[in-house]
Design a protein around this nucleic acid. Sequence first.
DNA 1: ACCTAAACGGAGTCGGACTCACCTTATGGA
DNA 2: TCCATAAGGTGAGTCCGACTCCGTTTAGGT
Lengths: 191, 191
Amino acid sequence: MEVSLTASRPLRRDARRNREALLAAARAAFLDGDTDAHVEDIARSAGVAVGTLYRHFETREALIEEVYRKEVDDLCAEPDHLLGQYAPAEALRRFLLLLVDHAAVGKGMSVALESIMASDSPVFDDARSRMSDALTRLLDAGVAAGTVRDDVTGPTLLRALGGICAMRVSDGWLDEARTITRLLLDGLLHR
Amino acid sequence: MEVSLTASRPLRRDARRNREALLAAARAAFLDGDTDAHVEDIARSAGVAVGTLYRHFETREALIEEVYRKEVDDLCAEPDHLLGQYAPAEALRRFLLLLVDHAAVGKGMSVALESIMASDSPVFDDARSRMSDALTRLLDAGVAAGTVRDDVTGPTLLRALGGICAMRVSDGWLDEARTITRLLLDGLLHR
DNA sequence: ACCTAAACGGAGTCGGACTCACCTTATGGA
DNA sequence: TCCATAAGGTGAGTCCGACTCCGTTTAGGT
């Protein structure tokens, strides 16, 4: 007698627990750099069998995407937060460097950004457009304040960042990424 | 009675022909965008069997790498050529845009650049360092002429470019890549 | 306590990279 | 010219990892 509309009933408790465990296990593996961890291993380390993994996620890819999407969600909240505290140009600077530092935490975030940018999988459309929107808000604020040039769009900037974050090797990584980001900012700001 | 040193004897004629055919077939497949073409198909379209493919190349990866390495070789020759004709800043500008346009020809070149940049496979060390050197020559010339800032290194710039060229999707691709490249140039040149 | 829809398990299937034992052929010396 | 032989080619078969399927187990409502 309950009107469920789209909410197709909450997961049973064990199901939710297992789903969470799988995401955590996958997150641990991917963000730790083992980008091609075997499904069998992920399932085992979550304490379930592969069948269960596939009940929750269409494919291995889908699981990965879900993990990455969560990461990105967190980041997308930042720009609004920053715009509340800083002038647009400064907010932009901070956000770009934040992304870079985030990517430095583990291979994971950079892989996430790269995937979001490089993949044409519709699964990422959503994450991509949210991130683009976040950047667009930053840029627009800067343009309105007259401190940022107006010929660069959010999607374009997203691609540039994806590129930078794709550089996830070698020791000098972080410094190089920061240098490039500053270069980009220099180009972005009005003189 | 021949002193062969390292030259382990030239390939038999049919072997050379097949090796070439395999590289051509792989090139056709990869540069055309089918980045995960099956070895079976590559072998067939080269007119040989898989066994032959594996006689010439350790793994599928090795074959891909070989294809990409050749592409990069060509590009590495450009900077010297450009420096002979243009002022350093202009040579730099042309080279960066050349890379972008090259990447636009097919997915292949961008994958090549991306792989060279992102992979830690030693197979690319050589290509990577040659490309870095090429960029360093351009930058040094610019610094000497006083038109380019001196705090950016060849390897750093290589990573930035790798990033840009990794953006190999969607329709607006080329314009976006050009925009970002100009942004980078703006940041790179002295005011 | 019982019922049933939901969730779980894990052996089995399938597809694709790679191997190996045997056959074919280029090539150089008699 | 012709043979010997090492180099090269072949493709059915192996291996391995993602994914499926159906019998078993269990949460949670009545």
